[in-house]
Amino acid sequence: MSGTAEGLALAYVKRWLWKAAAPVAVPVFGVLTLLLIPLAVLDAPEASTSPASSCSIAGTGASAADIELDAVQMGHAQTIVAVAAARGLDPYAATVALATAYQESRIRMLANDGSSPELTAEQAAVTATSLTYPHDGLGSDHDSVNTFQQRWTAEWGTVAQLMDPVYAAEAFYRRLVEVPNWRTIPLTQAAQAVQISAAGGAYARWEPLARELTAMLWPAAQATAVDASGTAAGVCPGLPVPAGSWIRPTAGTVTSGYGSRLGTLHAGVDIAGPRDTPVYAAADGTVVRAECTSAYCDRDGTLSLAGYGNLVELDHGGGVTTRYAHLSGYTVTVGQRVSAGGLIGFQGSTGNSTGVHLHLEVRFDGASVDPVPWLASRGVDLHATTAG
């Protein structure tokens, strides 16, 4: 991609890419994480829910062509579609890519442990480095990795590049546009020309699913390609909340309370739910901040990284503000008026964080207060498990 507009669009896409990832740490990282439990929350498991309840419980899950997709799959699908729009391709390109990704991985970012007997010891070791990158599961077909099962030995890219969902989609489209008449030939032929698969005829089976997903995700992706504001498109609707009410802003479990933490004030409450669980406005207000407050927010943060990561702050009037931190993405812009229950973002682990959660703060005249009793006095139980 080239040009300022495409660069901005790609920057947006990269904000999406880690939304969809559900990292599975290698053993050494797991041990370190367990040692840091007092300082951070661990990744919550992805919930399995019906499409009707997925927006309130497990993020951006949806159903297309009678196939249920969870939040992880929908996040990767959004990335694939957004990359097509950012490149100036048409919806058919995204449809071909989605059908391919579903056939190859069920639209999941797969690592590879290098256990295939077809690999040399050196190839196996290189392939196994994919385990050190965020992934949704394991595969063992030759040296194939990611949503498209691309192979580093077939010159698709390095393992590090291929484990980047944006790069993976870019690589697929680069080869697709080189296929003669790719816009007019049957989907399965276009996909097979790119993939050169032993089961090339299987892609056609997923064309209805891919077409529905493209229709669902293309409008937001296209709008972003034109105006790359850095915000995430809202897939889930807001909650129905009476005017003037306060609510619990997200689903999940309180894992860390307000107070001193190793000599530093933990100025809010951590609520941990599945990655991309929707975060809603706790009350009516105006957006005063919606930005990345750390050195980077296009992937999960660490304890050594300063800042809130992706942060949304709302002004509710009367000196009261609320902060929603470590978001994987946000759906609002500064100056926007939001109602209680309006979707503002998604749980993530950006910034000074080692696990997926929402860090919620309540402030009065700029000073933080304990959100638990403050919201309890307004009829909100933060120790419940559902939003609203």
Rank of each mutant, 00 (worst) to 15 (best):
Pro91Leu: 02
Gly61Asn: 01
Met74Pro: 07
Val81Phe: 08
Ala111Thr: 02
Gly114Ser: 14
Ser56Asp: 08
Ile107Gln: 08
Tyr92Trp: 11
Leu119Val: 11
Asp43Leu: 08
Tyr102Phe: 15
Asp113Gly: 06
Gln103Trp: 07
Leu42Glu: 14
Gly75Trp: 10
Ala94Tyr: 04
Leu119Gly: 10
Pro45Gln: 12
Thr100Val: 04
Tyr102Trp: 15
Ala64Tyr: 08
Tyr102Met: 02
Ser54Thr: 14
Ser48Tyr: 08
His76Leu: 12
Ala77Thr: 11
Ser115Phe: 07
Ser116Val: 02
Gly59Ile: 10
Asp90Glu: 14
Gln103Ala: 11
Ile57Pro: 01
Ala99Glu: 06
Arg87Asp: 02
Asn112Lys: 10
Ala85Ile: 10
Leu89Glu: 06
Arg106Tyr: 00
Thr79Tyr: 09
His76Trp: 12
Asp43Phe: 09
Ala52Glu: 15
Leu110Thr: 09
Val96Trp: 04
Ala40Gln: 13
Asp90Trp: 04
Ala94Thr: 00
Pro91Trp: 04
Pro117Val: 14
Ser105Glu: 00
Ala62Trp: 04
Arg106Asp: 02
Met74Phe: 06
Gly75Gln: 09
Glu118Asn: 12
Ile80Pro: 01
Cys55Thr: 03
Leu42Tyr: 07
Tyr92Cys: 01
Ala85Gln: 10
Asp113Thr: 06
Glu46Asn: 11
Arg87Val: 03
Glu104His: 01
Glu46Lys: 13
Ser54Ala: 15
Glu118Asp: 14
Ala97Asp: 07
Ile80Ser: 05
Ile67Leu: 10
Val41Asp: 13
Gly114Val: 14
Pro51Cys: 00
Ser53Phe: 07
Asp113Pro: 06
Gln73Arg: 14
Thr79Leu: 09
Ile80Thr: 14
Ser115Lys: 13
Asp90Gly: 13
Asp113Tyr: 08
Val96Leu: 03
Ala71Lys: 11
Asp66Glu: 15
Ala82Glu: 11
Ile80Trp: 04
Asp43Arg: 12
His76Ala: 12
Ala86Arg: 07
Glu122Arg: 09
Thr95Pro: 03
Ala64Ser: 11
Ala52Arg: 13
Val72Glu: 07
Gln103Asn: 12
Ser105Tyr: 00
Asp70Lys: 05
Thr100Ala: 09
Ala101Met: 06
Ala82Leu: 06
Gln73His: 10
Ala121His: 11
Ala62Pro: 01
Glu118Ser: 15
Glu104Trp: 00
Ser48Lys: 13
Gln73Phe: 09
Ala52Trp: 06
Leu89Thr: 07
Pro45Glu: 10
Glu68Met: 09
Ile107Thr: 15
Thr79Glu: 10
Ser63Leu: 12
Gly88Ile: 01
Gly61Ser: 03
Val41Trp: 08
Val81Asn: 07
Ser116His: 01
Ser63Met: 14
Cys55Ser: 13
Glu68Thr: 15
Thr49Ile: 02
Ile67Asp: 00
Pro117Ser: 15
Asp66Pro: 02
Tyr102Leu: 03
Ala82Asn: 11
